[in-house]
């Protein structure tokens, strides 16, 4: 486990050695805040709340996290550095965790760059800070679960485009299961308990509680176990 440190450091700093990180951070900030301002009615609502900001995160992540995660393993395979990495004294687990944690830290940074928005809300009104904190926590945990899926699909191919498309597809399925539109359709053919069961596997279902200020251990466990399970599959794929 002591090898995770250097791997994490290289990967995390690696984002900032190319323009990719800056482009990503700017796009992430503009789209997340833009959606809240122009689609979510952040100003029109006239409420000291960030709900209109967080409500778009599951949809925003659907495209932005595969964009950040597609290179994780696909790039190493394409340039051949995967051979270098796995002839250094590291285990597959250390390599997978080091890379995953670095990408997760990077995404956390992207999410936290919106903090001035929260401070502005606090300056203009008196928001429920507990709700804002739990929303941030939920968003970061959900990003980890998305990233787990993307890391897995990235390990399946050396082509970043294929990796991106696979990640979006897999995440879209996990997202849709709990989307009200999809559940409505499902409700016409399946009994209620079956619809609820299916919805339990969705990002939205588990994220909703966080945006209402509820930190339920079940939801935390869902995101962490989804990330853990996909990383386990990631190791299996790499050791094949």
């Amino acid at each position: 486990m002591q090898q995770i440190g250097p791997l994490f450091k290289r990967e995390f700093l690696g984002y900032f050695r190319s323009p990719v990180a800056y482009v990503f951070l700017v796009v992430f900030l503009f789209t997340s805040v833009g959606l809240a301002f122009f689609v979510g009615g952040f100003f029109k609502a006239n409420l000291a709340s960030m709900e209109s900001f967080f409500v778009f995160h599951p949809w925003l992540f659907l495209f932005l996290i595969p964009a950040a995660g597609m290179r994780l393993w696909a790039e190493e395979k394409r340039t051949g550095t995967v051979e270098l990495l796995f002839t250094l004294p590291v285990t597959t687990l250390e390599a997978v965790l080091g890379k995953f944690l670095a990408a997760w830290a990077f995404l956390t940074l992207a999410i936290l760059l919106s903090l001035p928005l929260a401070l502005t809300v606090g300056w203009l009104g008196s928001p429920d800070w507990g709700v804002i904190a739990s929303s941030y926590l939920g968003s970061i945990l959900m990003a980890g679960a998305y990233l787990g899926v993307c890391s897995l699909t990235s390990a399946l191919t050396k082509n970043q485009v294929i990796s991106f498309v696979l990640s979006v597809l897999a995440c879209f399925v996990l997202l849709c299961l709990g989307w009200s539109v999809f559940s409505g359709v499902l409700g016409t053919v399946l009994p209620v308990w079956a619809v609820d069961l299916v919805a339990n596997f969705s990002f939205i279902t588990h994220f909703d509680a966080f945006t209402k200020g509820i930190v339920d251990p079940k939801d935390v466990a869902f995101f962490l176990s989804l990330a853990g399970f996909t990383l386990f599959l990631n190791i299996v794929v790499l050791e094949r």
Binding site: G5, K9, L84
Partner: peptide, 24 residues
């Protein structure tokens, strides 16, 4: 390895520093 793969965005010193760190 054949064709000497290395992380292209790192400088020589950063790259060797990383290898040294991971080599203990």
């Amino acid at each position: 390895p054949e064709s000497a793969p290395a992380y292209p965005e790192m400088t020589v010193e950063e790259f060797l520093g990383f290898i040294a760190e991971i080599r203990g």
